[in-house]
């Protein structure tokens, strides 16, 4: 059964269609790559899925339940968590406290939350930074913190919005390994990414958006050889 079904989702801002009639499904445990040129509507789609924007039309079904009308906090509690393209560390709180905020979504005990948080901090290999102020971390570690924090909410489905953006190749490689580790934990992931090499490596399937519409969907190999996709990225002849 599909863990996430996106059914004919459209989002209009005034007359502008940021998403128009997008449909696809995700199977349990897979990694779905979501690509497309700037302004294709990738982040808007994330916002529609996670409750930040109500879709203008269409429906998002997660784990057999419709997400329409739910607020982001309710969506998170049901097991769908997202990270942000522009990282949002809770700057004045320590790294472990940041992750504890995520864990407190599942427990009321601070002690339990701290244990759960430390576990995730270890997963992203930030244990040496646990007591640092989150605002003082370099970008690579901020991205990892972002991932640890959402993992602490114990998601079934994780939506990662450009977690490799602005990272150097070594840092990107660490994130790639992290995403593959998360896959091994059985968590389904949807990944927005501009780095084509990375997305080809990690994705089981890829959806291509262009001007708000779904342009193509398929295995990574199929998608890159699709002439329409090539045209969208490089311009047609």
């Amino acid at each position: 059964m599909a863990i996430l079904e996106i059914k004919h989702v459209s989002k209009f801002f005034g007359g502008l269609a940021a998403n128009s009639d997008v449909s696809f499904e995700m199977a349990q445990g897979m990694i779905m790559g979501l690509i497309g040129p700037n302004g294709a509507g990738k982040t808007t789609l994330f916002n529609c899925i996670t409750g930040y924007y109500p879709p203008s039309r269409g429906e998002v079904v997660f784990d057999g339940r419709t997400m329409n009308g739910l607020q982001p906090d309710a969506v998170c509690k049901l097991g769908m968590a997202r990270t942000w393209q522009k990282v949002r560390p809770l700057a004045k709180m320590s790294v472990v406290d940041n992750v504890m905020v995520g864990a407190l979504c599942r427990t009321n005990s601070l002690k339990k939350a701290r244990e759960m948080a430390m576990e995730q901090v270890r997963v992203v290999r930030l244990e040496h930074r646990a007591d640092f102020r989150a605002g003082g971390l370099p970008i690579g570690e901020r991205k990892k913190l972002e991932v640890a924090r959402v993992l602490a909410t114990q998601p079934k489905l994780l939506l990662l919005d450009e977690v490799m953006g602005g990272l150097n190749p070594a840092e990107s490689e660490e994130i790639i390994q992290l995403i593959l580790d998360i896959k091994r934990l059985g968590i389904t992931q949807m990944v927005i990414e501009h780095d084509m090499k990375a997305i080809m490596r990690i994705s089981d399937r890829i959806v291509v958006l262009n001007s708000g519409e779904k342009l193509a969907e398929g295995l990574p190999g199929e998608v890159v050889s699709n002439p329409e996709v090539v045209a969208a990225y490089l311009g047609s002849e």
Binding site: Q71, D73, A81, R82, P89, A91, C105, R149, V150, T153
Partner: peptide, 12 residues
């Protein structure tokens, strides 16, 4: 620190 981040982490 960040309302949107808090919201996305399950905080009503």
């Amino acid at each position: 620190e960040d309302q949107d981040a808090a919201h996305s982490l399950g905080i009503n």
